[in-house]
């Protein structure tokens, strides 16, 4: 099937505690931190590749497109996805300030109208804004069904429907959706048996996590096309839905860490100092 995977670049999530707020609180800066693909989007790329391949035969079953909205440097992020095995990239040139939920969703809708994928497979959330909203917004704008928080996806009915296991607060909720649809992925989608596409044998053992780009993949990615679009060319309303007038850092936790060596010491302190038990 034809799958579109939107990918955002974010500043290194494992160093998110090094993000700074300007003195006047007007901006967040991530200077000195590396840009990485949003981890959930990387998982979505992996899930799309698994859906679109017969793994042991190394055979492609469908086209995987990746797209990103952002400044010109997001081409780098797209190249990473192409090196993993995606077929084509689309870069929608936008400034970081324009990347708000509705603008991104409207742009993705315009792209979907143009490319007509069977499935938009995306991260459930970006780990910079932590919004968890673009997928749902896009699905509604398209009038498509959706399945969020996907931990398992399997294809049925010759690729016309998907069965999706959603990781929810109270357990695992399973839905069957008819394509075209939007699916947003959660962490466990990249477990060894998260994806079943009817072609890759059910007992095929994938590694845990997203695949690394091979050297060959990196070489091939250099030749793959990245189409360029301008946000202004998509004919959409580019007014953002919200403003962030002020940022602040969380209050530091008060007090220092008290190290203890014995259970008795710990319980004593919890009882008399912290009054926690």
């Amino acid at each position: 099937m034809k799958i579109l995977v939107p990918v955002k670049r974010v500043c290194d999530p494992d160093n998110a505690n090094k993000v700074k707020v300007s003195a006047d609180g007007a901006t967040v800066t991530s200077d000195g931190l590396e840009w990485k693909p949003n981890p959930f989007d990387e998982y979505a790329v992996e899930a799309a590749l698994r859906l679109n391949e017969n793994a042991p035969k190394n055979e492609k079953l469908g086209e995987t497109l990746v797209c990103s909205l952002g400044p010109a440097e997001v081409a780098q992020t797209l190249r990473q996805a192409l090196a993993m095995g995606a077929d084509r990239g689309i870069l929608i040139d936008a400034t970081d300030g324009q990347l708000d939920t509705t603008v991104v969703a409207r742009a993705l809708k315009a792209l979907v109208d143009k490319e007509k994928p069977d499935l938009v497979l995306m991260g459930k959330q970006t780990v910079d804004g932590d919004s968890n909203a673009v997928g749902q917004t896009l699905a509604e704008m398209l009038g498509w069904p959706m399945a969020t928080f996907a931990m398992t996806v399997s294809t049925n009915d010759g690729g016309k429907t998907l069965t999706v296991g959603r990781e929810v607060d109270t357990g695992v909720l399973t839905l069957k959706v008819t394509l075209p649809a939007v699916v947003t992925v959660d962490l466990r989608i990249v477990a060894p048996a998260g994806i079943k596409n009817g072609a890759t044998p059910a007992d095929h053992k994938y590694n845990e996590g997203a695949r690394y780009a091979s050297l060959k993949g990196i070489m091939q990615a250099k030749k793959k096309a990245i189409d360029q679009l301008k946000l202004s060319e998509l004919g959409i309303d580019t007014a953002t839905s919200s403003a962030y007038p002020k940022f602040e850092l969380p209050p530091a936790r008060t007090g220092n860490c008290v190290f203890v060596e014995t259970v008795d010491d710990l319980l004593g302190k919890l009882r008399t100092q912290a009054k926690a038990i």
């Binding site: 999530p13 998110a16 505690n17 993000v19 707020v21 967040v28 780990v127 910079d128 804004g129 932590d130 007014a239 953002t240 839905s241 919200s242 403003a243 962030y244 007038p245 002020k246 940022f247 602040e248 850092l249 969380p250």
Partner: peptide, 20 residues
């Protein structure tokens, strides 16, 4: 109404107000 949101895994709080 202004809303405070944890972002960057709770390492920054943003205050936001809707434009709609």
């Amino acid at each position: 109404v202004l809303y405070k949101r944890p972002m960057y895994a709770g390492n920054v709080f943003g205050w936001t107000s809707p434009n709609t």
